[in-house]
């Protein structure tokens, strides 16, 4: 018993060392592509376009509190979306097609962590650009600045990170289709559809008809945008239940992604070898 614990600890230390090395190398790589990442940050404008429409629609003019709700919600959604961007299907497909995956498989750590760390590194590089855009937003839109309560400031990053993990696992499972079909990137477009309409990116789920909203909360999508944004905008009083749901989804999806990975690797036949 004692020996196995020691072994486990040694394994864990080794893993954290490798992961830290991966993360720092990926961070310096991403830092090289700052300009590109700035453009990606700008391309996440959709919540702000929707903000324009919702605040202009007669919905928001109905009474003043609605206006404030929409402004806070969509600015939060903009922030959440910035830090939950996932493109693992595209890069996995590229690595698979161009034969880079084989050397990754020989390394003493699963390629999963390589992609995971590159996403985190990209988010870290994004931070200054997001701040810059936020300042413009706060200056440009009237009554848009707010300071969330202290516990929200602490909890929101956790909610956003968990949302990112859910989305990453979801995409990872679909990325595994690359092992079976060369052009899996069209699946990414398919995955984008429920993400657009069920996550609360284009409209707060509160405006949906009752049945649809309940149905949406049975899928992982509302926990990607809607929950973190509502939390950040200060509309959720008791977030515990939502956090539980996020963890449950992470649990379910990690089992699936582990199985998908095992199945895929077994089927893998090194491109170009």
């Amino acid at each position: 018993m004692y020996i196995s614990l020691v072994k486990l600890k040694r394994k864990l230390v080794k893993f954290t060392n490798i992961f830290r090395a991966l993360l720092t190398s990926q961070y310096s790589l991403m830092h090289e592509y700052r300009a590109e990442i700035a453009l990606w940050a700008i391309s996440g404008l959709l919540p702000l376009i929707m903000l324009g429409i919702w605040t202009q629609s007669s919905f928001a003019n109905f009474n003043g509190s609605n206006y404030n709700f929409f402004v806070k919600y969509f600015i939060s959604a903009f922030i959440v979306r910035q830090f939950t961007a996932v493109w693992v299907i595209i890069s996995f497909e590229e690595d698979n097609l161009e034969g880079r995956l084989s050397p990754f498989l020989l390394q003493p750590i699963s390629p999963f962590w390589r992609y995971f760390s590159s996403h985190i590194a990209e988010q870290l590089t994004r931070i200054p650009f997001v701040f810059f855009i936020l300042i413009i937003i706060f200056l440009g839109i009237q009554d848009s600045f707010w300071i969330p309560p202290f516990h929200t400031i602490l909890l929101s990053p956790i909610a956003i990170f968990l949302a990112f993990v859910i989305r990453f696992l979801l995409h990872w499972i679909f990325a595994m289709c690359c092992f079976f079909n060369d052009k899996a990137s069209s699946l990414e477009r398919l995955l984008l559809i429920p993400y657009l309409f069920l996550s609360g990116l284009v409209a707060p789920l509160e405006t949906y008809p009752e049945i649809l909203r309940t149905a949406a909360y049975f899928t992982p999508f509302p926990y990607l945008i809607s929950f973190p944004s509502l939390l950040l905008s200060g509309s959720i009083v008791n977030p515990l239940n939502y956090f539980m749901h996020q963890l449950i989804w992470i649990f379910i999806l990690s089992i699936f992604s582990f199985c998908a990975w095992r199945l895929g690797v077994r089927h893998y036949s090194a491109m170009g070898a």
Partner: peptide, 27 residues
Amino acid sequence: VDIFTLVGNLFGSLLVLSLFYTNHHTL
């Protein structure tokens, strides 16, 4: 896959558009 994407996209867009028109609101 693309037909699925198109159908989903269409229904989603109609849904979002219809949200603006509930209770006699207009866009």
